[in-house]
Design a binder for these strands. Structure first.
Lengths: 198, 198
DNA sequence: GGTTACTAGATGACTGGTCATATATATTTA
DNA sequence: TAAATATATATGACCAGTCATCTAGTAACC
């Protein structure tokens, strides 16, 4: 079907209203009804804008990554600072953003949906894996630069380093959500700065 | 209500049969029907053995931690080895156990349920937080010993170190599940051994 | 008889998804 | 220009099935 601009705008509106519910309540905890009610749109319209609830989740994730990563990416690529400094600012930036989310109670949307659905929806799993790997790629480049500049040690490969930092961040977000406290994220940053990126 | 031995045995049987479903499909993805069907127990009986689905999840988590942590704890307290060696063996042991779970597709039950339900069930959140903090306490003691023995550096507090390692582990399990690969766990151990516990 | 252990079946609200139908907006034709 | 046609969008009633939970009862034992 041909998608008009108007079509896309309303689909975006549904995503805007529904994504936070999905983030908070998870895939199986969110009903299509919840989404359309939040947007004030009749039930029947949902399936005009999305193929299925699964399709809505995929587009929600894409939107989430776009919103969360884009501003942070600018920090990452801002060549006024040295590679290492850019990495630190980048992680600090992301972390503060996550801490701000509803008193540390919501965690990371991708982690939530990944943990819940990776085993049961290839669409959702693929969306998360492919976007995360693209983001990782961008960070890896900066780590390579930092290694070449001698700012951080070179015994570990950039992929190992970035994989570990990214994974540790996911876990910190999980614990943040469980304990409803920013400590895990602050502790995480402390390790990045003082132990990992050395 | 007075609980007989027989009563407890049958409740355990329901937990044994239902926990894996809960682990795999999550809280909202698992129905009471799924659980009783898996155990071959009449539907009406469920509420004779458990107060609610939420109660079942709490007891499932307690069972999960007991099964996963108990054997690992023996490694942790086996005083034949030095504190640092015990820590490394402990983490290696746990990691191999998690890698074995269904080709890396299931992740960690507590992370799954925590991410899904922490915001919506105080019972589930409290269960996870309190058990994890007890486990953390046991590990912290060994880190203290290792620091006193000069086996690992002392600039960081044992609580900081253990918090970070535990959180990083959760994230590694999340990525393991997303990517269906053991790499995140192996990379995690590599960092514990060569970067964190130094 | 009385107490406790257990369970079949029902409850009403809710699930993701479909459908026929209605209207609004473009596009084409005369 | 106006009329005719086609397409895009809107809508809520409606599936068949599932949800967590409860009630009212039977079965078992003392």
């Amino acid at each position: 079907m041909h998608k008009t601009l108007k079509h896309e705008a309303k689909a975006d509106y549904l995503l805007e209203k529904g994504s936070e519910i999905l983030w908070s309540r998870g895939y199986n905890g969110t009903s299509v009804n919840d989404i359309v009610k939040a947007a004030g749109v009749p039930k029947g319209s949902f399936y005009f804008y999305f193929d299925s609830k699964e399709d809505f989740a995929v587009k929600s994730l894409e939107r989430y990554f776009a919103i969360m990563f884009k501003p942070a990416a600018e920090v990452l690529h801002n060549t006024d600072a040295s590679p290492k400094q850019r990495l630190l600012t980048f992680y600090r930036f992301r972390l503060e953003k996550m801490k701000g989310e509803h008193e540390c109670t919501m965690g990371c949307m991708a982690c939530n949906l990944g943990n819940e659905m990776a085993e049961h929806s290839e669409q959702i799993r693929n969306t998360i894996v492919s976007i995360e790997s693209r983001i990782k790629g961008e960070i890896i480049k900066v780590v390579e630069e930092a290694q070449q500049a001698g700012e951080i040690r070179s015994q570990l490969s950039p992929n190992q380093i970035v994989s570990f930092i990214e994974d540790a961040g996911k876990g910190a977000l999980t614990t943040m959500k469980e304990t409803q406290s920013p400590f895990p994220l602050d502790n995480y940053y402390h390790f990045i700065e003082n132990v990992i990126l050395k």
